[in-house]
Simulated assay, not measured.
Amino acid sequence: MMEYIFVIIILFVCMLVYFKIADKYNIIDKPNHRSAHTQITLRGGGIIFPVAFILFALFNTNLFFNDYWAFGLGLMAICTVSFIDDIIDLSNKIRLSAHFISVILLLYCFGVFNAENLIPFWIWPVMFILIIGTLNAYNFMDGINGMTGIYSLVTLASLVYINQEIYQFVDKDLIYYPILACLVFLFYNFRKKAKCFAGDVGSMGIGFWIIGLITLLIIKTQDIKYLFLLSIYGIEVVLTIIERLQLKENIFEAHRRHLYQLFANEKKVSHLMISGAYALLQLIINAFLIHSNLSVWLIMLIIFIPAGGMYLGLKWSLKKEYNL
């Protein structure tokens, strides 16, 4: 317990130091046509997540060098490129190259390429597409105060429960440290007027960490139902992309078509209420998912039909109300 308290203190100090640096070098987020905020705010507060992993490595040296060094390199690579992208716009080629290398390191760390795992070659590209797609979904959904932090906290808490009560798939500290980082980040972000935003370094950093944990859980249990621990994000992003494709829009350009953006920008609902609602829905799904013995396909239908229907219904209602 004292170790975790000490880590929290260090993380708070690191955040305060970063605020000084960001303020001095003008690392800020200016509102634009995609933004759901109206004030200039410090960007890159999500740097707390790679810092938390560095602390994990320092306090768990044997674990890091024996088991998680490749995962750590992948996390640092994606966070470094994302932080640079927060300051200067990088090309898609550079970003995707970093994502590709990081995913290779993640999969290598968890033994996907080992001969004894006998994973068919054709599954590898599917895994790359799925992980990189989920990473970018995490980035797309990072648009309002509290969303990334509280949604991640719910997912991590679910992983803690699974690790303790269902199946121990990882050392507990690899879940606890991002939880501590989320709590510190939320202290500054889960506010009506946020002190800082996560930035790409935050959304990509915590997204990579959580996706890595879920990937390891699926490998260890051979149960793909745990993909649905991120199902709310998945439903939102996939349906939004389909809508934009139907409208013949460039899906790589900034937009305001996400449901949470419509609630925040048009309906003027509190960011904290929206973020809390998304996290609560995912928590309900996770509670059902963890204790369900149904087939994956049946679980998918039970989750996606009502959640997708609710999403489409709310989207249709808001678009009709505001003539969008």
Results as ranks from 00 to 15, higher is better:
residue 154 V to S: 14
residue 145 N to C: 09
residue 83 F to V: 05
residue 3 E to P: 15
residue 297 W to R: 00
residue 309 G to S: 07
residue 65 F to G: 01
residue 174 L to G: 02
residue 264 A to H: 02
residue 45 G to W: 00
residue 306 P to E: 02
residue 28 I to Q: 09
residue 115 A to N: 12
residue 103 V to T: 11
residue 4 Y to M: 04
residue 275 S to E: 13
residue 75 L to D: 07
residue 111 G to K: 06
residue 232 I to L: 04
residue 72 G to V: 03
residue 79 C to P: 09
residue 229 L to P: 04
residue 32 N to W: 04
residue 7 V to S: 10
residue 26 N to K: 15
residue 288 F to D: 07
residue 285 I to V: 15
residue 300 M to K: 00
residue 321 E to V: 00
residue 259 L to Y: 10
residue 25 Y to P: 05
residue 173 D to W: 13
residue 48 I to R: 12
residue 274 I to Y: 06
residue 37 H to Q: 04
residue 78 I to C: 09
residue 67 D to Y: 15
residue 317 S to W: 15
residue 205 G to V: 01
residue 314 L to R: 12
residue 224 I to E: 11
residue 112 V to H: 07
residue 160 V to Q: 13
residue 42 L to N: 13
residue 248 K to P: 04
residue 182 C to W: 01
residue 259 L to F: 06
residue 151 Y to P: 01
residue 37 H to V: 02
residue 215 T to N: 05
residue 280 L to Q: 10
residue 274 I to P: 11
residue 111 G to R: 09
residue 14 C to R: 06
residue 194 A to R: 04
residue 78 I to G: 08
residue 130 L to F: 15
residue 309 G to K: 11
residue 161 Y to V: 02
residue 146 G to V: 02
residue 148 T to V: 10
residue 187 F to W: 15
residue 116 E to F: 08
residue 68 Y to Q: 01
residue 286 N to G: 08
residue 106 L to E: 05
residue 222 Q to F: 09
residue 314 L to A: 04
residue 148 T to S: 14
residue 85 D to V: 02
residue 112 V to S: 05
residue 128 F to R: 00
residue 302 I to P: 01
residue 132 I to H: 02
residue 205 G to S: 07
residue 272 L to Q: 13
residue 20 K to Y: 06
residue 270 S to L: 04
residue 304 F to N: 15
residue 315 K to W: 06
residue 244 R to N: 05
residue 103 V to I: 11
residue 300 M to P: 03
residue 91 S to W: 04
residue 85 D to Q: 07
residue 295 S to Q: 08
residue 67 D to R: 06
residue 302 I to R: 01
residue 162 I to K: 12
residue 256 R to F: 00
residue 198 A to L: 03
residue 84 I to M: 12
residue 32 N to R: 03
residue 132 I to K: 03
residue 273 M to F: 13
residue 95 R to N: 07
residue 190 F to C: 03
residue 234 G to T: 04
residue 274 I to E: 10
residue 129 I to M: 14
residue 9 I to Q: 05
